[in-house]
Design a protein around this nucleic acid. Structure first.
Length: 993
RNA sequence: GGGCUCGUAGCUUAGCCUGGCGGAGCGCUCGGCUGAUAACCGAGAGGUCCGGAGUUCGAAUCUCCGCGGGCCCA
C-alpha cells in the first residue's frame, strides 16, 4: 500500500515526540542548513538569554517567532546558520548568589573570596540550562545549542577587550563621574529597580538660604534645599531661563526668587521692585557659603540656567552640588562647572570641621551656622518620599562615583545615520521610541564596581598616571611584569596582573568590570572570537539580516548592539529588527514570579503540544503586540484548525488506502480536471501568494488566519464535502483520480506552506504522503511559490457567488421551515444575465447542496407566493434567490425516503461499522406513506446505505441493532444486520456508500 | 513625572494608514446538516467603537485633551 493508514484521532503530543526523535536521528536541522551551503546567507544573531531562571512564556513566544522566520528563510533557499548564545555576566547573577550565600554586601563578598564567589556565579548561570535546552527543543526551535557562544568564555571576553581597545584608541573611552543612588553602609550603588522598592515617607529639614550676589548691593538669590549637608559641595545656583523672577525689597536687603514662588515669603514684609527672566541672571556670581572643601576642574559660584528647574516647590532657584545629584552633575558637564567632593564612600565628611561625621548628622549644625551668618531666611520640616536601602534600611545618598564612559553623545549623529539603514517592525519604533532614544543618547556608563563580569581592561601607571587599554591576551602577556599564567580573565586573577609602563613604572588594573549589556552588544563579532579567529566568518555574518526580541530590548540589546557596532565599526549591526510584544496573563497583567501568574509552559507542551501553542501565538494577533495568554484559546485553535487539517488528511488517507491510489501513476493536467479541482488549486495558489506577502513583513497573524480560513472553510467544508462522492466512485474513474490527485497536491503543498509555523504535524503528514524521490523531510523542501497560471480569478469570484447563493437558499429554507432533507422542485436565481452565465455551470452543485431538482434564471422575481426569496450582494450586484416551496406527494415521499436513509446511516454509525461493511435492513411500519416511499426508492436506499436488501417484516427479527424511530408523527421500527466479512472483501475498492 | 504603544459585543479580535451601512470567532438561545471532522450551516440576542472636545456634509477611522492597561525611562 502506498500510504500508511492513520487513526481518526491522533495524540498530537505523542506524534510530536516521534518527530523530535526523527529529527534527532536524521539530523534534519543540520541537513537543512548544509543543503544550502552554496546559497546566499540570511544572517541571524541570537539574543542571548540568561539561564539562571526558568524560561518564561515570553521567551517561548520569542523563540517560536525566531524559528518560524528562520525555517521560512531556509525553505526560501537561504543559508541560515543559527548559533545559540548565553548571557552569563552581571548583577542579577551576583544577587542570586548573594542570596544563596546569605550575604548582602560587597564587604561580605570580599570576605568570602572573589574567586570563590565568581565560581559560584559561573555555576549559577547554567543552573537552568537543561530546562532551557529542553523547552527550546520541545518547541521545535532549531538552533545550534551544541556550540553556543557564552559571554564568560575567555575567547568571547578577549573579543570584547579588543573592541574596547578600538574604542579607547578613538578616544571614546574616558573616566568621569556618575551620580548613582548609593548605600553608604553596603558600599554599593543600587539599581533603579532596587531603589524603587525602598521609598518611604520621611521628614527632612526644609531650608531657605540666601546666596549673596557679588557686585550687587545687598542682594541675594534665595535657594531651597532639604539636604543642608550638600551645601558643603555647592558649586552653582540654577534658575529656569524662561520663567519670570522678581527682585523684592525686604527692609534694607533685596532677594531674588521666582515670581510664582512668592508664596514662600508669606508673613514677610516685602515689595516687588523688579521683574526679569531667569535667563537674565545667567553668569551672575555669588559669595561662596562654605569653603571647607576644594573645588576642582572648572568654574564655580555663579548662576546658571537649566530647564529642569520647576516652579512646583522651593523658590525657583536650585543649589547645585554635582557630587550629590544626577541633574546637578549634568549641569556641571553642560556648563563646565567644577567638582567638589567632601564625602567618602562611607558617607562621612573628609573635610574639617566635620571630618568623620556622617552626612545626615551635620544638617542641624549647618542650619545653626547659616543662622549665625544671617543667611538663613527661614527653615522648617518637610515630608517627602525618600529612598532607603532595601537590604539594610540606610538612607541612600545620591553620590558621584568614578566611572568609565563611552562617549555616545559624540556618536549621536553616527547612531542616527546607522539607524536610518535599519528596517524596523513595527515601523514607528525607528523614529519613535528608538529614534528618540538615540537622538538623546547619553554617554554609556560602562563600568561596574562589581565582581562577576568582563574586567575593564584598563591599567593605570602608579608612577606617571598614564592609562592604557589592553586589547588582547598576548598584548597583556608582553607587557606583564610578574609573568603569571592567566587562564581565566575574570577577577580576582586578572587583578594580580601588573604591567610595565613606558615610564618604567608599574601599572595596575582598575578594579571595575563592565556592564553586561556591552557583552551581549558585542555578540556579532565576539561569538566568532573576531578578530583573533574566523575573520572570514565574521565578514560573511556582519551585519545581520535579522534579529528579533521583545520590545523591552529597545533600550537594551537593540541599543547595545547598535552602540557597540557604531563605536567600533560605524555600521549598523543589523538590517532588520522585529520587536515583539509581551506575553501577559489572562487579565492583561505582566506575568511575574511574585504575582504567581506565570504559566508553566511544560504543562502546555504536554497537554496540547508545540504546534498548538505555536499556532496560537501566530494567529492571536500581530507579533509586535502584547498577547493575553489563554489556555482556552490554545485548545480552541487546536480543535478547530489542527484537527481539521488532520481530518482532511485522514479523509484522503482513508480512501486512498481503500482504493490503493498511487499519485505517481496518475498524471492529469489541472486544466483537464473538474472545476472544483481547478478552484481549490487556484485558491491554494492565491493563498501561497498571500502567505508569502504577509510573512515577508512579519504579519504572521494575517498569513496564518488566511491559511486557517482556507483549510477550514474552503478545503474541508467546501472542496472535500462537495467532492466527497467523487472519492466514492466505484472502480477506476478519471474523475476520481482527478479528485485524489488534487487533494494530494493540496495537502502536500499545504504542509510545505505551513512547515515554518507548525513544523511537527506538517512533517508527519508530509512524510506519509511524499514520493520516493522526494526530500526526506518537509523542512528540506523549497517553499511553495504561487503559480500564476493556476490562478483563475473569474473562477474564484464565480465560486464565491455560488457559495453565497447556497447560503441564501439555506436561509430561505430555514425561514420557510422546510428541512434540508425535504427535496424541493426548483430554485430561481434572479440577477443580471451576465452574472448568471458565470454560475450556470455550477447548477448541479447548487441543486445538490440545496436539495432541489433544478435551477433556472429569471430577470424578474417570480410573482407566485410559493416562491420565497432572499437577497445577496456579490460582484457588486444584487442577486435574489427564490426557492419554490411547494410540495407534492412525490416530493414528500422522497423526503420521507431521505429521513429513512438518514436513520439507517445513524444506526451504521452507532454500530461503528467499517465504511465498506454491507448490511441487511428489516423494517416494520403501519404507515402507508413510509411503506410506499421505501418500495418506490428501494434501490436508492440500498445503494446509499450499502444494504444488500431492505425487507418488511411482521415480527421481531434478529439483528445487530434494532430501534424504533419517529418521523414526524409516523413510526418505523428498523433492524439492521451485518453481512459476512467475506462479501465485504469481495467488494474490493468499490462502492462505499 | 516623561516618551512610546494599545483600548471595538461577556471573552478573543477585523476594520483605522487612505473618513462613507461596525464585521468575524468563542460563549448563549433556537433551528438545520453529517459515515472525514473534536466539526459544519442558518437565524436570534448581545455595541457609549474607553470618555470629552474639535475638523468635516459625514468620524471607530483624522486632530487635541483626559482615563485605563503595557513597556521603557525618571
Amino acid at each position: 500500500m502506498r500510504f500508511n493508514r492513520e487513526p481518526q484521532r491522533i495524540d498530537f503530543v505523542e506524534l510530536e515526540k516521534r518527530i523530535l526523535e526523527k529529527w534527532d536521528k536524521e539530523r534534519t536541522f543540520e541537513c537543512s542548513v548544509k543543503m544550502r551551503e552554496k546559497c546566499a546567507r540570511f544572517v541571524f544573531v541570537e539574543g542571548p538569554p540568561t539561564a539562571n531562571g526558568l524560561p518564561h512564556p515570553g521567551h517561548i513566544f520569542t523563540r517560536a517567532v525566531k524559528d518560524a522566520v528562520l525555517r521560512l528563510k531556509t525553505m526560501q533557499g537561504f543559508l541560515v546558520e543559527r548559533k545559540a548564545g548565553w548571557d552569563t555576566h552581571g548583577l542579577p547573577v551576583e544577587i542570586e548568589v548573594e542570596k544563596e550565600l546569605g550575604i548582602n554586601s560587597k564587604r561580605e563578598i570580599e570576605e568570602f573570596g572573589i574567586g570563590r564567589f565568581n565560581q559560584r556565579c559561573k555555576e549559577s548561570v547554567f543552573r537552568y540550562e537543561r530546562e532551557w535546552v529542553r523547552a527550546t527543543k520541545r518547541l521545535g526551535f532549531w538552533i545550534d545549542m551544541d556550540d553556543p557562544y557564552v559571554t564568560f568564555h575567555t575567547k568571547y571576553m578577549e573579543s570584547v577587550w579588543w573592541s574596547l581597545k578600538e574604542i579607547w584608541k578613538k578616544g571614546l573611552l574616558y573616566k568621569g563621574h556618575k551620580v548613582v543612588p548609593y548605600c553608604p553602609r553596603c558600599g554599593t550603588p543600587l539599581s533603579s529597580h532596587e531603589v524603587a522598592q525602598g521609598y518611604r515617607d520621611v521628614e527632612d529639614p526644609s531650608v531657605f538660604v540666601k546666596f549673596r550676589l557679588k557686585g550687587e548691593k545687598n542682594t541675594s538669590m534665595l535657594a531651597w534645599t532639604t539636604t543642608p549637608w550638600t551645601l558643603i559641595g555647592n558649586v552653582a545656583l540654577a534658575v529656569n531661563p524662561s520663567h519670570t523672577y522678581v527682585r523684592v525689597r525686604m527692609g534694607d536687603e533685596y532677594i531674588i526668587l521666582a515670581e510664582a514662588r512668592l508664596c514662600e515669603l508669606e508673613g514677610f514684609d516685602y515689595e516687588i521692585v523688579e521683574r526679569f527672566m531667569g535667563a537674565d541672571t545667567e553668569g551672575m556670581e555669588y559669595e561662596r557659603l562654605f569653603d571647607y572643601a576644594e573645588v576642582v576642574d572648572g568654574d564655580a559660584f555663579k548662576v546658571v540656567t537649566a530647564d529642569f528647574v520647576t516652579l512646583d516647590e522651593g523658590t525657583g532657584v536650585v543649589h547645585i552640588a554635582p557630587a550629590f545629584g544626577a541633574e546637578d552633575y549634568e549641569v556641571r558637564l553642560q556648563k563646565g562647572l567644577g567638582f567638589c567632593q567632601p564625602v567618602d564612600e562611607r558617607g562621612c565628611f573628609t573635610v574639617e570641621p566635620f571630618r568623620g561625621m556622617f552626612v545626615k548628622d551635620v544638617d542641624e549644625r549647618i542650619i545653626e551656622i547659616l543662622d549665625e551668618r544671617g543667611v538663613l531666611l527661614k527653615h522648617g520640616k518637610y515630608m517627602h518620599k525618600y529612598p532607603f536601602c532595601w537590604r539594610c534600611q540606610s538612607p541612600l545618598l545620591y553620590y558621584a562615583r568614578e566611572s568609565w564612559f563611552i562617549r555616545m553623545r559624540s556618536l549621536r549623529d553616527d547612531l542616527i545615520r546607522n539607524n536610518e539603514t535599519v528596517r524596523w517592525f513595527p515601523a514607528h519604533l525607528k523614529h519613535g521610541r528608538f529614534g528618540n532614544f538615540i537622538e538623546n543618547a547619553e554617554d554609556w556608563a560602562l563600568s561596574r564596581e562589581r565582581y562577576w563580569g568582563t574586567p575593564l581592561p584598563i591599567w593605570i601607571c602608579e608612577r606617571c598616571g598614564r592609562e592604557e587599554c589592553i586589547g588582547s591576551i598576548s598584548e597583556m602577556r608582553e607587557k606583564m611584569i610578574n609573568h603569571l599564567e592567566i587562564s581565566d580573565l575574570h577577577r580576582p586573577f586578572i587583578d594580580e596582573v601588573v604591567l610595565r609602563c613606558r615610564c618604567g613604572g608599574e601599572m595596575r588594573r582598575v578594579r571595575d568590570v563592565i556592564d553586561c549589556w556591552y557583552d551581549s552588544g558585542s555578540a556579532p563579532f565576539a561569538q566568532w572570537h573576531f578578530p583573533f579567529e574566523k575573520k572570514e566568518k565574521f565578514a560573511e555574518n556582519f551585519p545581520a539580516d535579522f534579529i528579533t526580541e521583545a520590545i523591552d530590548q529597545t533600550r537594551g540589546w537593540f541599543y547595545s548592539l547598535l552602540a557597540v557596532s557604531t563605536a567600533v565599526f560605524n555600521t549598523a549591526p543589523y538590517k532588520t529588527v522585529l520587536s515583539l510584544g509581551h506575553i501577559l496573563d489572562e487579565k492583561g497583567e505582566k506575568m511575574s514570579k511574585s504575582k504567581g501568574n506565570v504559566v508553566p509552559i511544560e504543562k502546555i507542551f504536554s497537554k496540547y503540544g508545540a504546534d498548538a501553542l505555536r499556532w496560537y501565538f501566530f494567529t492571536s494577533g500581530p507579533p509586535y503586540e502584547d498577547i493575553k495568554f489563554s489556555e482556552k484559546a490554545i485548545a480552541e485553535r487546536q480543535r478547530k484548525f489542527i484537527n481539521t487539517l488532520w481530518n482532511s488528511y485522514f479523509f484522503f488517507i482513508t480512501y486512498a488506502s481503500i482504493d490503493n491510489f498511487v499519485p505517481e501513476n496518475v498524471n492529469i493536467p489541472v486544466d483537464e480536471r473538474d472545476y472544483l479541482d481547478k478552484w481549490i488549486i487556484s485558491r491554494l495558489n492565491s493563498l501561497i501568494k498571500d502567505v508569502r506577502k504577509h510573512s515577508e513583513v512579519f504579519e504572521f497573524h494575517l498569513a496564518t488566519r488566511k491559511t486557517e480560513e482556507f483549510v477550514i472553510d474552503e478545503l474541508s467544508n467546501w472542496y472535500i464535502r462537495r467532492s466527497r462522492r467523487r472519492f466514492w466512485i466505484e472502480g477506476e474513474s478519471r474523475d476520481k483520480h482527478c479528485a485524489y490527485l488534487t487533494l494530494y497536491e493540496v495537502l502536500v503543498t499545504l504542509c510545505k506552506l505551513l512547515a515554518p509555523f507548525i513544523p511537527f504535524i506538517t512533517e508527519h503528514i508530509y512524510c506519509n504522503l511524499k514520493s520516493d524521490g522526494d526530500k526526506e523531510s518537509v523542512h528540506l523542501c523549497d517553499y511553495p511559490e504561487c503559480d500564476n497560471a493556476l490562478v483563475d480569478e473569474d473562477l474564484e469570484v464565480a465560486m464565491l457567488i455560488v457559495m453565497k447563493i447556497v447560503e441564501a437558499g439555506r436561509r430561505v429554507r430555514s425561514d420557510a421551515g422546510i428541512k434540508m432533507r425535504q427535496p424541493l422542485r426548483e430554485i430561481v436565481v434572479c440577477c443580471d444575465q451576465k452574472i448568471y452565465e458565470k454560475i450556470a455551470g455550477f447548477a448541479d452543485l447548487i441543486c445538490e447542496e440545496l436539495n432541489v431538482k433544478e435551477m433556472r434564471w429569471s430577470d424578474e422575481p417570480p410573482s407566485d407566493t410559493v416562491y420565497r426569496g432572499a437577497a445577496i450582494s456579490a460582484a457588486d450586484r444584487e442577486i435574489s434567490v427564490f426557492v419554490n416551496t411547494e410540495l407534492d406527494a412525490s416530493l414528500v415521499r422522497e423526503g420521507l425516503m431521505r429521513e429513512i436513509v438518514r436513520r439507517i446511516q445513524e444506526m451504521r454509525k452507532q454500530l461503528d461499522l467499517p465504511y465498506t461493511a454491507r448490511i441487511k435492513v428489516f423494517y416494520t411500519s403501519d404507515d402507508d406513506d413510509i411503506r410506499n416511499a421505501i418500495s418506490e426508492f428501494r434501490s436508492y436506499i440500498c445503494s446509499e446505505t450499502l444494504s444488500d436488501g431492505i425487507y418488511e417484516t411482521e415480527k421481531e427479527t434478529d439483528g445487530d441493532l434494532a430501534r424504533e424511530w419517529k418521523i414526524g408523527n409516523k413510526r418505523i421500527f428498523i433492524v439492521i444486520k451485518k453481512e459476512k466479512e467475506k462479501e465485504e472483501r469481495d467488494r474490493g475498492g468499490g462502492n462505499r456508500k
